[in-house]
Design a protein around this nucleic acid. Structure first.
Lengths: 226, 226
DNA sequence: ACCTGAACACCGTTCAAGT
DNA sequence: ACCTGAACACCGTTCAAGT
């Protein structure tokens, strides 16, 4: 049925094809490189053709969230985790870390999430699942609600690092340049490197898990006390 | 000495005047309204004149961080808090909440922080102070380091909320529209409103403090066990 | 129905020119 | 030294026109 005369682009546009290309551009060239014009060019089409499949650029960004959330749901769905009734903390931990693994493939995703906090259905669905897990683990709705806030973006696998976003810059060097202005940070780095080399001393995965466990442990304490 | 003939703008530009205006625009009209052209207009000058006082727009955004951090440092400096040696947790809590109070006056600030995680001296100085507080409170450098990561942006008074950024949209209505797609969220809201009206049931300040205390309590536990 | 070309109203920024 | 006008290379988006 398809495939008579190619209608300009290769095989006809569609919302799915547009979003797939948008993800590819963001993955390969960064979010800043994703413009309606670059997106069109990737698809072998004029920029204005895109508007037949997406309302505007905002809709493209919404679609990006949709794609990433679908990947996360798929990863979570494939998990072999304990039943929340037996061990909600492990179940939750695995879920969050699975989400995080998806995000490492899309380093631009947190920045996109941050700009469309409005109310995205895919994101709401994910948090609904998280809440459901906690309910099965014995949380009241009230504690579950607070837990959602306490976790925030961590439930999706990322946290706002104020230093070094994409691992581009070595914080040690930057801190060294500030030297006497930040004595404690300097001492901290000196302490961490106790004699040896200090390459890559910030293990972001480990730090993420530390923060996650700190919160999950706190929540479990409150849950079991209730 | 000054005040002979007005040199075009009212009294001459300066980096300080440019940044002050930039903050005013962001406060009053939002971050999106802050363009080099709008900034210039506010100052009664042509856009290109700005480049004599700031390198480019990135430098303006860096300056925004500088201004906000100076306000935070001032607020923290004016605090009457316990000595960290006596009660680090209260000292920290007060510091973070003081920072948060500054941020409510600049709702755009988190978004700006998020885009310049590189290494900002004012931000680094703030975290240096936080680390110093924890050191005085009995933290090892190692635990202090982990604590900085665990707190992340919370140390500066904000956390990434994935729903409802600026309190514009009522999550209840949005959730209601999704209805059967998010059953747990719907039930949670129903539970929270147990009969009464549910206006503004998300108390962001309370939720922020809950999450903060969860982390601080967890850290204190680890500190005292060490 | 879908795609296009030209155009509009914006951006940040450069450059040569003014005083 | 500081400010300006015109221009450049981009944006997202509208609109009338093509097929």
């Amino acid at each position: 049925m398809a495939g008579k005369r190619a209608p300009g682009p290769q095989g006809g546009l569609s919302r799915e094809r547009v979003l797939r290309s948008a993800v590819a551009i963001a993955d390969e060239r960064g979010l800043a490189a994703l413009t309606m014009r670059s997106l069109a060019e990737t698809l072998g089409v004029e920029a204005m053709s895109l508007y037949h499949h997406v309302a505007n650029k905002e809709a493209v960004l919404d679609g990006l969230v949709e794609v990433v959330m679908a990947e996360i749901e798929a990863a979570v769905g494939g998990l072999v985790a304990p039943e929340p009734e037996d061990d909600w903390k492990t179940a939750m931990r695995m879920r969050v870390l699975a989400a995080r693994e998806v995000l490492v493939g899309h380093p631009w995703a947190p920045r996109v999430f941050e700009t469309r906090t409005g109310t995205s259905l895919p994101v709401a669905r994910y948090f609904d699942g998280v809440l459901g897990l906690m309910r099965r683990g014995g949380f009241s709705y009230e504690l579950g609600h607070r837990a959602l806030h306490a976790l925030g973006s961590r439930a999706l696998g990322f946290s706002q690092e104020l230093f070094e976003p994409d691992g581009v810059e070595a914080p040690e060097e930057a801190v060294a340049a500030m030297a006497e202005q930040v004595p404690h940070l300097v001492a901290m780095i000196a302490d961490a490197s106790h004699g040896g080399a200090l390459l890559g001393w910030c293990d972001y995965q480990a730090e993420f898990e530390f923060g996650l466990d700190l919160i999950l442990d706190g929540l479990e304490r409150l849950r079991s006390e209730a």
